[in-house]
Simulated assay, not measured.
Amino acid sequence: MIAALPTAQNVFTYAVRYDRGVALARESVLVTTIVSVPVVLLAAALLA
């Protein structure tokens, strides 16, 4: 279940702080958040 969770906001925070890979971190957080919703629901249904 933990593997289905989205990328943590810490990744974006570190990218902004060190001014490296901000766009990649931002897009990663967005995409993994969107994709995680159906994956978590599917995992919960399979485990129930």
Rank of each mutant, 00 (worst) to 15 (best):
G21A: 05
L30Y: 12
I2K: 11
T33L: 15
P6C: 02
T13Y: 07
V22M: 01
V39H: 08
A25I: 02
T33F: 14
T32Y: 05
V29G: 13
P6N: 02
Q9L: 09
A23P: 02
F12C: 12
V37S: 09
V40Q: 05
M1P: 08
A8G: 13
S36L: 03
A45H: 03
S28H: 13
R17E: 05
Y14H: 14
V40C: 04
V11E: 05
V35L: 14
R20A: 02
F12K: 15
V35H: 06
A25R: 01
L30C: 01
V40W: 13
M1Q: 07
Y14Q: 13
D19M: 03
P6W: 11
L24D: 04
I34V: 11
Q9R: 04
L42T: 15
V37Q: 04
V35D: 03
I34G: 05
V40Y: 06
A25C: 11
D19P: 07
A43N: 13
T13I: 06
A3N: 09
R17Q: 10
T32V: 01
V29F: 15
A23S: 09
P38L: 05
I34Y: 14
V16T: 15
I2P: 12
L41H: 07
V22D: 00
I34L: 15
I34D: 07
P6I: 01
A3S: 07
V31F: 01
V40A: 05
Q9G: 07
V39A: 04
D19F: 03
N10A: 07
V29S: 14
M1E: 08
R26K: 15
V16Y: 00
V11G: 02
L5A: 06
F12M: 15
T33R: 08
P38I: 02
T13Q: 07
T7S: 15
L47G: 03
T33D: 00
L24K: 14
L47E: 04
T33K: 09
V29C: 12
A44T: 14
